[in-house]
């Protein structure tokens, strides 16, 4: 399997993705942002088709769209009730735009399928390099803001009382989330990103009582999903995203079951 360059690239890329998604996902879950993450991936879809339309790579198109919109959402939404609604509006707008750009760029339908559902075949060496650089940036920034982000995510009331700058932390985190979404979309596709960004972290929550352990477990759950998914995809020729989604969901339901048993 590793004699194929695209498989080697796919393994490297998905390993990085699982690590970044584990880290970022723990905060997505504790800040209660799965919905926003899902929206960002739809925005990513619009960005990718925009990229094709103007002739840049889908990844760069995604980066432009998701980063800009994450900053907009951060500026707009301080009140969470209003945020949900503005997110829905933005989401609808961007899916529409994605469809438009796709039509305008005259690409075949399989191109759209790749963006939406991911593809392992198309990942080149230079894609991998760009993903590594972006991921390292995300992880480094996370380490710098780690203590404040942790406080603000796991106890916003206490953080505010102690003068943690929540506004700044939120915007930085949204931008990191946008970067992670764009990177993760390359393997699992825009529609299934939230699987890697929320399920491993949501499962990890039930097994550990510290943030660092949650991150470690979320990374492990993510890795199990992508490694096994790639392998199964390779031997069956079925879509990798299908396997990743199934594995992560199984882990999540097992975690819920485990939690139920522990409570009795």
């Amino acid at each position: 399997m590793f004699s194929f360059e695209f498989m080697r690239n796919a393994y490297v890329a998905s390993t990085i993705i699982a690590i970044v998604c584990g880290f970022v996902g723990v905060f997505v879950v504790s800040r209660n942002m799965p919905f926003l993450t899902h929206t960002l991936s739809e925005i990513g879809f619009a960005g990718a088709s925009f990229g094709m339309f103007i002739g840049i790579t889908p990844l760069n198109g995604m980066l432009i769209f998701t980063v800009i919109s994450s900053i907009l959402v951060g500026k707009m939404g301080t009140k969470s009730s209003r945020r949900e609604n503005s997110i829905s509006a933005i989401s609808g707008l961007f899916i529409g735009l994605g469809v438009l750009f796709l039509a305008l760029s005259n690409k075949s339908a399989s191109y759209a399928t790749n963006i939406l559902f991911g593809s392992v075949v198309g990942i080149s060496q230079s894609d991998v390099n760009q993903m590594v650089i972006l991921s390292v940036i995300v992880l480094l920034v996370l380490l710098v803001i780690y203590r404040n982000l942790k406080f603000d995510s796991f106890d916003p009331v206490g953080a505010k009382a102690q003068h943690v700058n929540s506004g700044l932390i939120s915007i930085i985190f949204l931008v990191l989330l946008a970067l992670s979404v764009s990177v993760a979309a390359q393997i699992v596709g825009a529609l299934l990103i939230f699987i890697l960004l929320t399920l491993p972290a949501a499962s990890a929550k039930y097994f550990s009582h510290s943030v660092s352990k949650m991150i470690a477990l979320a990374v492990v759950f993510g890795l199990i999903g992508v490694w096994l998914g790639l392998y199964l995809g390779y031997i069956t020729n079925w879509p990798v995203s299908f396997f990743i989604a199934t594995i992560e969901c199984s882990i999540y339901f097992a975690a819920l079951g485990f939690n139920r048993i522990m409570q009795n």
Partner: peptide, 22 residues
Amino acid sequence: DEYPLSVKNFVALSFSGYKLPW
């Protein structure tokens, strides 16, 4: 009641600021 952090880790959140993670 699903709040995941232990009492100790919750208390330790207070050590905030732009410092090393541990």
